[in-house]
């Protein structure tokens, strides 16, 4: 049971600013996701929470208490590693027991605690097996059980499923959501996969080279990005960002004052066959969706259409967009406040 708060935290490594004046709060029981490219500061935040690094300036609070002088061992925060780091020579049960045995906790207490956690995670029936005999999802659950058996205030995961193949990732992230709902514990999760981040998190922070660019629910960030950076980080195919003077191409009559760039998500770009300024240069049929590349005035726009429309490359099309679904950015790439 814990909330985690960063207040104006800065951390430098030599000349590199790994985290720049970060302030945010992770609610109790949240599934909070740190999302950004490599070296954007995600792992630094994890290390600061764990106490493996100390902030240069600013304060970190767990459950309202400052933890600056609390050693990593006493912070009561658990970590699930990227490769899960299960001990291959021990059974699942011994893996789960390990943190308690190491702390010389009385056997009766260990039994009670292990029973409680394994029941919640539904792994009672596989405890006798070594990790090698478990499925990917089961191993994930055993690793989480080992992390949670100490009853930590919060647990952290550093890109835990990036090594799995595409199909398994889709299944495992849903599994993680289920586990999180069952465990009711604060989870801080690091990933560089936007789809995974949006799928699992109920709150997320988008980072760029040490700075937090935006915090909110995945839906809010997707619908109302505060910058072209956040807009481009979320969504596949990527959002189209075109200069303001191309408004005519997408039939936007009047732009808000100061709009230097327009962002249109591929699924919001309407493609009208029967002549127009755009030329279809590529069609990618994905079954459920079809991705079109449309060349217009030297730019390539992506459109994502539902189903399998009957279109040919080379066809001329006109483009339009519902103004309410367009995003407007100033010259610096910051979103204009139009949704007020």
């Amino acid at each position: 049971m814990a909330s985690i708060r960063f207040q104006n935290v800065t951390k430098r490594f030599g000349d590199i600013v790994a985290l720049d004046d970060a302030s945010f709060e992770i609610r109790d029981n949240a599934f909070f996701c740190l999302f950004g490219p490599p070296l954007s500061g995600k792992s630094t935040i994890l290390k600061l929470i764990l106490g493996l690094e100390t902030p240069d300036t600013g304060g970190i609070f767990i459950d309202g208490q400052p933890v600056a002088h609390v050693s990593p061992a006493k912070r009561n925060v658990a970590m699930v590693f990227q490769n899960l780091a299960l001990f291959p020579h021990m059974s699942a049960l011994d893996n789960v027991r390990f943190p308690l045995v190491e702390r010389k906790i009385p056997e009766a207490q260990i039994r009670a605690r292990v029973a409680q956690v394994t029941e919640k995670l539904h792994i009672g029936h596989i405890l006798g097996k070594p990790p090698a005999q478990l499925s990917g999802g089961e191993r994930q659950r055993v690793a989480i059980a080992r992390a949670l058996v100490r009853d930590p205030a919060a647990y952290l995961m550093d890109d835990p499923i990036s090594a799995l193949d595409a199909r398994l990732r889709e299944e495992t992230r849903v599994e993680l959501r289920r586990i999180q709902q069952e465990m009711q514990k604060t989870l801080v999760y690091v990933t560089h996969d936007q789809e995974e981040a949006m799928s699992v998190a109920d709150g997320m922070a988008v980072l760029e080279s040490g700075r937090i660019r935006q915090i909110g629910t995945p839906e809010d960030l997707y619908r109302q990005p505060n910058s072209t950076y956040v807009a481009e980080m979320l969504g596949a195919p990527r959002i189209n960002v075109i200069p303001g003077d191309m408004a005519g191409v997408i039939a936007l009559p009047n732009l808000p004052a100061g709009a230097a760039r327009i962002g249109i998500r591929p699924e919001n770009l309407r493609v009208n066959p029967g002549g127009g300024e755009g030329t279809i240069s590529e069609i990618e049929p994905l079954g459920a969706f079809t991705t079109l590349s449309i060349d217009a005035r030297g730019q390539t726009l992506k459109a994502s259409l539902r189903g399998q429309p009957d279109l040919q490359t080379g066809a001329h099309v006109s483009l339009s967009v519902d103004p309410a679904r367009a995003h407007f950015f100033d010259a610096a790439g910051n979103a204009l406040a139009v949704d007020a």
């Binding site: 992230r173 959501r177 997707y222 998500r265 459920a288 994502s304």
Partner: peptide
């Protein structure tokens, strides 16, 4: 049937419970 051809329909003949909802952008 593919997940994409499931049409929400208040009068539809099929009914199930919602377990998990993943919002992935579009």
């Amino acid at each position: 049937f593919r997940p994409e051809v499931v049409h929400p329909d208040d009068d539809g003949p099929l009914a199930m419970g919602v377990e998990i909802v993943e919002h992935i952008g579009a």
